[in-house]
């Protein structure tokens, strides 16, 4: 009798492990291949997301008041610095507007409707974050009803922070670029060097010890300087051109010494996200 029950327990454990792996494989495949999760999952996520919004209101309010209190302490210094920057910014903005207008007219001349740089921004707020140490994901409060499609780039503050990994009706999951998993979609980026040449490459991962993004598959041997700006190149997929990623921190040979590997300091603090912007491109 004892032996029988032991065997039964073993069978149950083995069946559970097999079912678990089957489910994981299926859901990873769906995540990689399909543009939206199954309807049941979407529906469930929408409901949980709705309840979570109610829970998130008091906690986010609390953290907002705490952070505003701590920010009050260095407001004066910051104000001084920002005033200087604003006066410079006004000039840049006016010039930017003029250029954008000119650009629009020129596009009209050659009857070019949309180019790689065109996108509209959808602002969303972060509801919650995945409590997991390897899945760096946040859930945002905009979904397919706001025009969000899988793989769209997401920005916060001044720079790129990740891409949309899963879309439900009213919320979606954003996988941050700090996530190192194998299936993560990599961004195609480019650097315009001081000499004027363009270097293309692909963001390949994140080095957590230094907090830097790595860039691989670099096309040329052009000299890249520390501090060169990295932007998305708009090649291959739904990412528009010209989203700021960060600055080059270090250039070195890759693990096998065959090509160059770059380390990029991200433009924004990737662990502190409240409001994000999804770059929606016309498809």
């Amino acid at each position: 009798m004892q032996k029988f029950s032991f065997n039964r327990r073993l069978v149950i454990i083995i069946v559970c492990v097999i079912v678990s792996f089957a489910l994981m494989t299926v859901s990873v495949t769906i995540r990689n291949k399909k543009s939206t999760p199954p309807l049941v999952q979407q529906f469930g996520n929408d409901i949980v997301g709705f309840v979570d919004r109610v829970v998130a209101i008091p906690t986010n309010g609390l953290s907002g008041s705490v952070s505003s209190l701590s920010e009050l302490l260095n407001t004066y210094q910051e104000n001084q610095q920002l005033k200087k920057q604003v006066s410079e910014l006004a000039q840049t903005k006016v010039r930017d507007q003029t250029l954008a207008k000119e650009n629009k007219q020129l596009k009209k001349e050659i009857s070019l409707n949309s180019s790689l740089t065109d996108y509209s921004a959808v602002t969303a707020s972060v509801i919650t974050r995945t409590p997991s140490s390897w899945q760096n994901q946040v859930v945002i409060n905009k979904g397919s009803s706001a025009g969000i499609v899988k793989n769209m780039p997401v920005m916060s503050g001044s720079g790129l922070i990740g891409r949309v990994a899963e879309v439900n009706k009213t919320n979606s999951k954003v996988e941050l670029i700090t996530d190192n998993n194998d299936t993560a979609n990599r961004f195609a980026v480019q650097i315009t060097t001081k000499s004027g040449s363009t270097v293309n490459g692909v963001l390949s991962g994140y080095k957590s010890t230094t907090g830097q993004i790595t860039m691989n598959n670099i096309t040329t041997k052009a000299k890249i300087n520390k501090g060169d700006k990295v932007v998305t190149s708009g090649l291959g997929g739904v990412t528009p051109k010209g989203l700021y990623v960060g600055k080059v921190a270090k250039a070195s040979g890759d693990d096998y010494g065959l090509s160059t590997k770059l380390y990029i300091t991200p433009a924004t603090d990737l662990s502190d996200l409240n409001i994000v912007t999804v770059a929606v491109t016309k498809q």
């Binding site: 559970c16 079912v19 678990s20 792996f21 089957a22 489910l23 994981m24 299926v26 859901s27 990873v28 995540r31 999760p37 999952q41 469930g44 996520n45 949980v48 997301g49 979570d52 919650t128 995945t130 409590p131 997991s132 899945q135 994901q137 859930v139 990994a165 899963e166 999951k173």
Partner: peptide, 14 residues
Amino acid sequence: FDLYYTGIFGIYIF
């Protein structure tokens, strides 16, 4: 947990 947080079904359910 699996559906809402991780998006990978079949880990925490077991």
